[in-house]
Write a protein that binds this DNA or RNA. Structure first.
Length: 262
DNA sequence: AGCGATGTTCGCCG
DNA sequence: TCGGCGAACATCGC
């Protein structure tokens, strides 16, 4: 379930389990998720290394190594990261594993193989090449720069929120949530939003993502007023109880409440 | 059996 | 040039 909050949870998993440990060996089970680096090279560069830092930018997780290089993890639509102790069973769709000396391992899972692992020597060049905008929770992203970045887009506000070059980290689920909390319909054009609405969106971006992280990105643990807990074809609005509607925006299905979101 | 799914990229079209 | 759209990727579950 990898949008910004999910990836932040994975970052914390990596941080609390794998930091400063020596990678004894690397197992790769899918050339597909490694398509940019030959598997032998990937294994060789990582073996014997130590993870010294973790960093998240939007939906990307980066593990900093002692050498100064980074491993980049992107989870696609169905990826996950898990730390397993020795003897714990391999999960399904395990595509790569960092094996530590005590038999524990950090496992990269990607069911549909839409996720990717990257070997990165120039982190800044990597994010530049992908045209990633600032992280949606970047402390330096003030309201002024948020509205300026948003205003550069002409299409629907949902597409703009999901555009990783505008802000990095928001996908289909959380763009719906942000729009719901800000009471803005997904199909509204960015150009026609009032200043108060843009301010509401800015606030909602912060609050929604922050609260989702606090809930460990688990829908059941999120506030009862969250739309994503009701995100189903027959779902009811958590605020007014009315029926939710869906609409196709930017090729994705968005859920919204037609009476709460003007 | 068919369709859609938390993402990204590409080609086509207006 | 921009944006919208559909397809493709691979797999699972409804």
């Amino acid at each position: 379930m990898p949008e910004l909050p999910d990836v932040e949870v994975y970052r914390r998993v990596l941080d609390s389990t794998s930091l400063n440990r020596r990678i004894a060996e690397v197992a790769t089970y899918s050339d597909k998720v490694l398509q940019e680096t030959p598997p032998e090279a990937f294994r060789a560069r990582l073996s014997g290394q130590r993870i010294t830092s973790s960093l998240r930018h939007g939906k990307y997780l980066f593990a900093g190594l002692l050498s100064g290089d980074h491993v980049g993890l992107h989870f696609g639509m169905s990826g996950a990261l898990a730390f397993l102790e020795e003897g714990e069973e391999d999960p399904r769709h395990e595509r790569c594993a960092l094996l530590f000396q005590d038999g524990s391992r950090l496992v990269y899972i990607s069911q549909r193989q839409l996720g990717r692992l990257f070997w990165i020597e120039d982190l800044e060049g990597f994010t530049r090449a992908r045209e990633l905008g600032p992280d949606a929770l970047d402390a330096d992203l003030d309201f002024h720069s948020f509205s300026r970045r948003l205003a550069a887009r002409r299409g629907s506000v949902k597409s703009a929120l999901m555009d990783q070059s505008v802000l990095a980290g928001i996908g289909n689920i959380y763009s719906d949530e942000i729009l719901f909390q800000a009471k803005v319909a997904p199909t509204r054009r960015v150009r026609e939003l009032g200043e108060g609405e843009v301010a509401g969106l800015y606030k909602a971006v912060r609050e929604v993502l922050q609260q989702a992280i606090e809930a460990d990105a688990q829908p059941e643990a999120m506030p009862p007023g969250f739309l994503l807990r009701c995100r189903a074809p027959d779902g009811a609005c958590p605020r007014c109880g009315g029926s939710l509607r869906t609409v196709k925006v930017g090729g994705r299905r968005g859920y919204f409440c037609p009476s709460c979101q003007g």
